[in-house]
Simulated assay, not measured.
Amino acid sequence: MVFVLLVIALVIWMGIDLMLGAKKRRKNPSSLKSVSADMEFIADGDDFLRMLLKDLDAAVDHIHMMFFIFRDDTTGNEFIDKLCEKASYGIHVRLLTDYMGSRHIKKSTIKKMKKSGVHFSFSRKATFPLFFTSINERNHRKITVIDGKIGYMGGFNIGKEYVGKDPKFGYWRDYHLRIKGEAVHELQKQFLSDWSRENAGTELDEAFFPSLPKGNALVSLHITNGNSVEEMFISLIDDATSLIYIGTPYYIPGDKLQESLLNASSRGVNVKLILPIRADHPFVQEASFPYLVELIEAGCEIHQYMNGFFHAKVLLVDDQVCDIGTANFDKRSLTINGEINCIFRDQEMITKVKNTIERDIVQSDPLHLKRLKDRTLKNRLIGPIARALSPFL
């Protein structure tokens, strides 16, 4: 009897905790800052690894890195060794990783970094009184700033799977941006904001914000904390007149975003989604199936990427506007996580992204309604559980 009462009390506590957390997130500030930038599009893990290590090696003042997942594996240690080396030379190095996403970093590795002079911190650690909210709200941003002059943001994390070295996933497809110009200041501000949240009394250095040239393109950096991503996606989709490409590893959009896509299809917009053929998270595919059935019945195209794992987050509308960032088309990105997205209209960059999307579609299989309806009994039984858990997947 005592055990039952404890379970009931725990469930009530969790429910109140999560309800208060959701209410608080709806009031969180978000920002949409338009600045100039020069952008380089990266869609291959080896290219990302090579370019980032080269820029780290050239750092002369500071390195600021923030990732949701930072593995303590061979790939992660290649970066850790580089950070330790630069810190030992007197370069100011800060590494911020999400508490849950990077929880497997060994204490000995953290000790090694700190001994070398690397300033390491976890982001979004568990706290009271809203304990369940704090372990559910994740910092999903991936930002690197080097010498205040070069920035990175996008979908890649640090670990062997992201460079195609995990046989479970094979080749890893992701979209990332290397940025120069005034936009780097905005990446720097967000990094320092996230860092200061965990490390009170952080001092700012003028070297963090050197004078930067204007870039060739105008971009809008959309920074969110559990709100306004949905509104941004819907505003872009509702303006579509001919074509929408969406790439995401997880498609659990909720009713409003799903309706926006269905409305686009009904007015003659060609809607195409790229999703992975396999899942890297339990229940994700089952939670997405009801939404996918609706899209296919409405005439939308669903393509499942076959050449490894598809992790890119991209929205391209009418060859006119593109969004690349960290937010997925799922409820967690829409209503819980801290995210950063880059929206741009630069035609040269959009052409590069579109060409990559179309190559990815060639390496995908179309998903037909029959395959969704011919699921096994086990999958059908899992479906209701997955839908109930979808806000937390």
Rank of each mutant, 00 (worst) to 15 (best):
M1E: 14
I16W: 08
K24V: 05
N28I: 06
S34G: 02
M39I: 04
D46C: 08
L56D: 11
D57M: 09
I69Y: 15
N77T: 04
L83V: 07
A87S: 15
G90K: 15
R94N: 01
K106R: 15
K111V: 01
A126M: 11
T127C: 12
T133V: 11
S134K: 00
S134V: 00
E137N: 10
T144E: 12
D147R: 03
G155S: 07
K160S: 10
Y162M: 09
V163H: 14
G170C: 02
R178M: 04
I179C: 02
G181P: 00
E182H: 05
A183M: 09
W195A: 04
N199S: 06
F209A: 01
G215F: 05
L218Y: 12
S220I: 03
L221G: 00
N225P: 03
G226F: 12
N227E: 09
E231G: 01
E231R: 06
I234C: 05
T248G: 02
T248C: 04
Y251D: 03
Y251G: 03
R267I: 07
A279H: 11
I302K: 10
H303R: 10
M306Q: 13
K313E: 06
V321R: 15
D323N: 08
G325N: 06
K331M: 10
E348H: 12
M349T: 11
K352L: 08
D360W: 01
D374K: 13
R375K: 11
I382Q: 11
R387N: 12
L389S: 14
